[in-house]
Structure formats: structure tokens, C-alpha cells
Simulated scan of single mutants.
Amino acid sequence: MSPTNKLAEEIAALAEEHGHTVGAAESLTGGQLTVQLAAAPNASSWFRGGVVAYSSEVKRDVLDVPHGPVVSKPAAMAMAAGACRVLGARIGISTTGVGGPGEEEGQSPGTVWIGLAWEGIPIEAWEYKFGGEPDEICSQTCEAALQAVRDRMHIG
């Protein structure tokens, strides 16, 4: 079992145990995070869905991302909050970043922001610097996003 599958299964168990619902807003990962969550056990009872907002216009129009760089903490935070709002989820996770091979917005490939919104708790976001090819950066991003959700669920 892959690390992302294991993390998604842990999220599923915790979501069911505590009555949480989860939604995702993705850019860099292009739906890969949503696939992992949707494939987890009993996803229909706790996973609300995902929004793949690859273009800046979609991020702004659908997820209320402010004008400015989309590979940034404010964008990741707005995307996570947007996932909660648009999907009716208690927990929103977001991914935005540069997969490569070139720079974007002056950011080097592997620069990633992951946002986490949780009903009633201040929104958080973390920056990562991953290495490798674009597909490896996306895989590392999915794993880090799932870890963030799982770890936050353990805290409550």
C-alpha cells in the first residue's frame, strides 16, 4: 500500500469516527489529491469532493483567491477556505505550487503551498520545497497534504 493510500485510509477512519467532512481545492496536483480521498473507504459518507482550479481566473472566480501571486500563502489559505465554502465541508485542504520544469511567478520548481481550513479554527498554510520531476513534486505534495489533514484530525 502506498503512503498516500495509507494516509487516506487513516483520514477516512478519523472522519467517520468524528463526523468530519473533507473537501479539496487543487491547482498543482490537478485532481490527484481528490482521487486519493475519493478512493478511501466509505468516502461517500465524509468526502464532499474537489475543485481543480488550475487557472488563476478559476481560483479567483470560484475560490475567492485574492489578486496577486497564486503560488503563495494567501492563495493557499483562500483555496482551503473556498473548498469548505463551495463544497460544504468542515475541513478544506488546498494545493498550489510550481511543478516545473520552469519557474512560475518567480518561484522555482518544487515550491509548494498547502492550505488547511477547519471550521472554527484559523486557516493555516505551509510552504514546502520539493525536488524531482513534475510528477514527483505532485506526489510529494499529495502526501504532505494528506499528512496535514491526518495530523490536524488527531489534534481535533
Results as ranks from 00 to 15, higher is better:
Leu87Met: 11
Val86Phe: 11
Arg90Val: 12
Leu33Gly: 07
Ala75Asp: 00
Ala38Val: 12
Gly92Pro: 01
Met77Gln: 15
Ala53Glu: 05
Pro74Ala: 11
Pro69Gln: 14
Gly92His: 07
Asp64Pro: 07
Ile91Gln: 07
Ser44Cys: 13
Lys73Gly: 11
Gly68His: 08
Pro41Glu: 09
Leu37Glu: 01
Cys84Val: 03
Arg60Asn: 08
Ala38Cys: 08
Ala89Leu: 09
Thr34Cys: 13
Asp61Met: 12
Leu37Met: 09
Ser72Pro: 02
Leu33Phe: 07
Ser55Trp: 06
Val62Gln: 09
Ser72His: 05
Ala81Glu: 15
Val62Arg: 09
Trp46Cys: 06
Ala80Met: 05
Ile93Met: 09
Leu28Asp: 04
His67Ser: 14
Pro74Glu: 10
Gly92Ala: 10
Met79Glu: 00
Asp64Thr: 13
Gly82Arg: 05
Gly49Ile: 09
Met79Asp: 01
Ala39Met: 12
Val35Ile: 14
Pro74Asn: 10
Lys59Trp: 06
Arg90Ser: 15
Arg48Glu: 13
Leu37Pro: 03
Val62His: 09
Met79Asn: 01
Asp64Val: 06
Val65Ala: 04
Ala39Phe: 04
Ala89Asp: 08
Val65Gly: 01
Lys59Leu: 05
Ala53Met: 02
Arg85Met: 00
Leu28Cys: 07
Val70Glu: 14
Ala83Pro: 00
Met77Val: 10
Pro69Val: 05
Leu33Val: 07
Gly88Thr: 01
